[in-house]
Design a protein around this nucleic acid. Sequence first.
RNA 1: GGUCCCGUGGUGUAGCGGCCUAACACGCCUCCCUGUCAAGGAGGAGAUCGGCAGUUCAAAUCUGCUCGGGAUCGCCA
Length: 599
Amino acid sequence: MYKDTNCGEPRESAVGSQITVAGWVHRRRDHGNLIFIDLRDRSGLLQIVFNPEYSQTAHDLAGSLRSEWVVQITGKVVRRLPGAENPDLPTGAVELSATDLVVLNRALTPPFEIADDIEVDENTRLKYRFIDLRRPRMQRALKLRHEVTHIMWDFLTAKGFTQVETPILIKSTPEGARDYVVPSRIHPGEFYALPQSPQQLKQLLMVSGLERYFQIARCFRDEDLRADRQPEHTQLDFEMSFVHQDDVMAIVEELYSRIVHETVPDGTISAPFVRLTYAESMDRFGTDKPDLRFGMELSTVTEIAARSDARVFQSVASSGGSIRGFIAPGCGNYGRRQTDELTEFAKQSGAQGLVFIALDESAESIEKLEDDHIKSPLKKFLSVEIVRELATKMGAGPGDLMLIVAGANRLVNTVLSNLRNEMARRLEFVDEKHFAFAWIYDFPLFDWDEDLKKWEPAHHVFSSPKPEHMQYLDTDPGKVLANLFDLVCNGSEMGSGSIRIHDRDLQARMFSIIGYTEDQISERFGQLLTAFSYGAPPHGGMGLGLDRLVAILVGEQAIREVIAFPKTQSAVDPLFEAPSPITDQQLEELHVRVVMPRS
RNA sequence: GGUCCCGUGGUGUAGCGGCCUAACACGCCUCCCUGUCAAGGAGGAGAUCGGCAGUUCAAAUCUGCUCGGGAUCGCCA
């Protein structure tokens, strides 16, 4: 070994011992006859002193050290001079008085500083990711990520789960997200696909009698990227046989509680996890992934607003849309600039506009609300009576700001749920150390696709309908709820699960409801249906996003921050410069011809 | 596919028609310095302002296109 001690380890108890450390020169402070080095390794920082009285040669060499050089240093741990301790450093009571210095490798000046508080262009960071990852914050994220998967392995192993690796080269199924595709050399004109999830494979493992399977699985989707979406992401994929929905939830609840407690000791968690039906979540929050760390729940005021003289309200109500809103408490004094910002924000989410009604705090109560107390761009269309009714319905009081959006149901929900999160951010309602986990369940089995004029599976085709809704399967598919549930936390979807269909005929019926022909069914799902004919147990499971979980635990918005080598928004890896063209010879071997798009 | 924001020495920013021969901080280089820890002091090097085209007597600054990064809607079973 090049070292017998890690930089972050020495404490007062080590004073007097001779140690050898190795690491990177974090900073050098050269006082001429006395040189200080902060030496960094994965464990932290240790101050090294080069004093010519102890070693002239080491001191001479130390003068030439530069940032990020890799060095090995031997010396004696000494107590720092009184008053020279550094309380900000865990090793701050001691320092290493160097007797030997070996330069293991020199380094170019890094393109950016190795520090947590830097703000460097992300492309530069990714291009030099190997340096970016030297930052303590990044190391913390990677280590925490490891800790999380370690807990998952431990926990699930103890619960009788078996980890199975499923193939990365599988068959393309054109529904859902776009597949990443790999050409076959051996079979000209044929392609593998990278899995979007090991869904069918794990269901087959249930038929195989494994009963409890899990995998930290890489999943691939060729869709546009976002802060929380990468072309490849990792999920905890698991499946269990002979279970009901509650059994699946219970396992996850125990596991995730443990993960939070062990990785974020000062974090708080809502236990048991909140449970909301999909319908209730949409009604109260306008989204199926509500942030439950704060209130500001939505109200529906279509009927009241439609009785006002405002034409926007009347026309939306008569065309079957909805008028909904929520209260921003204490924001009745918002000025033009603030309301403009919010309007702009709402428009970004697709709203035509945003209606404000501010109630002056001088009003004694809603009952005693006077015309003077009301401020709104729509004021001349709103009678005091209507405003009183609205305020009562929405729960507004003097000094509050009512935010109202009118439009198509879905749009109104999108806008208001985004706006609700934005207001919480502005009003600092968000507790960063609280993890508000919730189960959203009773999702509909199908969504109506207006463009294609057909039913689409709300999550995926393998989820089972609730038994009591089976009767509507053919007559009114939109009415059928599924044994389908999402785990959400702080406004993010953490994963999705369901009790699957294990009956061959029912699964085949599902495929035909969403419009697959017999040929398509046997071509794409033949193996699953066949397997179901050979004794498939009732089963269910989940896919839980690891990247998002770790991001939430470390308080990052973008999952790029918790992925060692992520891609940019255009799906490029700036470090390796992937994707890239391949040689003509490779193309020929793969029987692939490239047709560039006309520009 | 759409919308919005950003692009100036190595890094982060300022400048937003002529005062720019581009400013500041950090970093870098040289020298000085025995107690610093974002060390300090003195001096120095380094950018033609993402690219192209245009408007103008004059462009980092205005316009168009384009490239790159980010956010977001669509999309993501």
